[in-house]
Simulated assay, not measured.
Amino acid sequence: MTNVGPLDAAQFRTQVSGSSFYAAMRVMPKAEREAMFAVYMYCRLVDDIADDGTRPRPERAAALARWREDLQALYAGRPAGQAAFLQGPVRDFGLKQADFLGVIDGMDMDVEADIRAPDLATLDLYCSRVAGAVGRLSVRIFGMDEGPGHELAHRLGDALQLTNILRDLDEDAAIGRLYLPRELLTQAGIDTTDPVAAIADPRVDRACRALAAVALDHFAAADRLLRSRPRGRLLAPRLMAAVYRALLQDMLAVGWAPPRRRARIGKPRLLYLVARASLFG
């Protein structure tokens, strides 16, 4: 990967070296691993734009628009600017422009206005953009056929994204966001959409458990698909599913009533999950 500006490839690898993502990618063959690093770095770069509270919204929107222009140039065979580092993965794995743009569509939702207690349909759209699109890019790198690949991208993508939402309640509230769906908050007796007030209410645990049940359904569907052994190199998605399901189970065990501590998978347990997925997947 070539240097892409504020976050270059070496810096990126250092930042993610202790993550579950890094552990999953290390089990892949080199070509696939490099392509996944490029896709993940792209996601980080556009996500950093969306989350940059130091810049006004129009400036962030313009930065995302420049990414759209560079992606268009890349697929048209012209100099691709900041998207040039994606050229190899796009060529080698047939990655689709629409999926890269789908990620930006999700970032645009965050830039347009802080998401606060979206309805379930809006949350589903958001997950499809920020997670499903990444999943569709990933399953092409994994070598899956389109049918089972798109199903895995949807199911595992939603499961991972919902788990992230449940893990990051406090961090998201600190920047004015609340991704818990309005319907589940209302069922829990919480009427406010103010992020800090909503997650300070002990009844938020009920809303989070309801969303966790949705995530578990997606994990179960992804597991059934993986166990059917579709064509492809499936160790990496199997490992990601195992790690994030364990993270969700840990959160379910302690609940989401305040005060909360951000759930983490320690390195010894992560290594155990890697070994288990490798041996019994």
Results as ranks from 00 to 15, higher is better:
3 N>R: 09
4 V>I: 12
4 V>A: 15
8 D>L: 13
11 Q>C: 10
18 G>W: 09
19 S>P: 01
22 Y>P: 03
23 A>M: 06
24 A>N: 07
28 M>D: 00
32 E>C: 11
37 F>R: 01
40 Y>A: 01
43 C>S: 12
47 D>R: 09
57 R>G: 12
58 P>E: 04
58 P>I: 10
59 E>G: 04
63 A>N: 08
64 L>E: 07
64 L>T: 10
64 L>P: 07
67 W>C: 04
73 A>S: 14
83 A>T: 03
85 F>W: 07
93 F>A: 00
93 F>M: 01
93 F>Q: 01
95 L>Q: 01
98 A>R: 15
106 G>T: 07
108 D>Q: 14
117 A>R: 02
121 A>I: 10
127 C>E: 03
135 G>C: 13
140 R>N: 05
141 I>P: 05
142 F>L: 04
143 G>W: 12
154 H>E: 12
156 L>G: 09
156 L>Q: 05
159 A>T: 04
162 L>K: 15
163 T>F: 09
164 N>A: 08
170 D>M: 00
177 R>P: 09
178 L>G: 04
193 T>L: 00
201 D>S: 01
202 P>Q: 08
203 R>K: 09
204 V>D: 00
207 A>Y: 06
210 A>V: 04
214 V>H: 01
218 H>C: 00
221 A>Q: 15
233 R>H: 15
237 P>Y: 00
239 L>E: 03
240 M>F: 14
243 V>M: 02
245 R>Y: 05
256 W>N: 02
260 R>P: 07
260 R>L: 02
264 R>T: 14
272 Y>F: 14
272 Y>H: 08
272 Y>W: 15
274 V>S: 02
277 A>D: 14
279 L>M: 05
279 L>K: 00
281 G>K: 06
